[in-house]
Amino acid sequence: SSLDVPFPSSREALIALRSLSPDKEPRKGGISKEITVKDNTLSRWSADEARILRVSVNSFMDHLLLVLETMEMFSLPVSQ
């Protein structure tokens, strides 16, 4: 299954990708998560079993939301 999140620009999508990617999933084995960016869309791919999908997606959404809030509050004014 995949979850797509549109960003205002590819720069922001890439920042989110690099912030969200380094940490491994806490569960050992059985989970395959991958985050990719194409243009300005960040996608989370996984082949989770239904019973762990909810927990895994919830945690991803918590992390994503924190990254988005951080961008909203602490982005520098864009220089033209």
Partner: peptide
């Protein structure tokens, strides 16, 4: 603890890139 450490690392990584 894993989950609290991740929270803090996410913000640090994001601002390091933004700035």
């Amino acid at each position: 603890m894993g989950a609290p450490l991740v929270t803090v690392a996410l913000v640090a990584r994001t601002v390091a890139q933004l700035w």
